[in-house]
């Protein structure tokens, strides 16, 4: 995955059973962002792998004032990369 300067990780262990997972996102390299992030803390949130999209979450984070609108794409990409990795691991853990 490309180094976007925004780190996204699982906030709790994923057993592959629930469609909703908990993620944690924080800025590792503020220089990679166009706007100044509002807070330098880690933002924890839930994400439904089946119903939601990373773009929705990124937009809500911008609307909640965490990130500048110019950084919505990079935030969405960071979430998308981590979600893809989680789904890939799930497929390996329990193939259909």
């Amino acid at each position: 995955a490309e180094d976007t300067g925004v780190r996204v990780e699982l906030a709790e262990e994923d057993h592959g059973r629930k469609s909703t997972i908990a993620l944690r996102l924080w800025v590792e390299d503020p220089k990679k962002l166009k706007g100044k992030p509002k807070d330098n803390g880690a933002i924890e949130f839930t994400f439904d792998l089946e119903k939601e999209s990373p773009d929705d979450v990124a937009q809500e984070m911008v609307e909640s004032g965490f990130f500048h609108e110019l950084d919505m794409k990079i935030v969405a990409k960071s979430i998308r990369d981590r979600v893809a990795l989680i789904q890939w691991r799930r497929e390996r853990m329990c193939p259909e």
């Binding site: 780190r7 924080w26 590792e28 390299d29 807070d39 330098n40 803390g41 880690a42 933002i43 924890e44 949130f45 839930t46 929705d56 979450v57 809500e60 984070m61 609307e63 909640s64 004032g65 965490f66």
Partner: peptide, 27 residues
Amino acid sequence: SANTQVVHSAGRRFIVSPVPESRLREP
């Protein structure tokens, strides 16, 4: 600082907590 919470109008809850020093990248 203590955790803060922001609830978006769409209903998602964002919980902000300090990033552990070990997770911050050296400048």
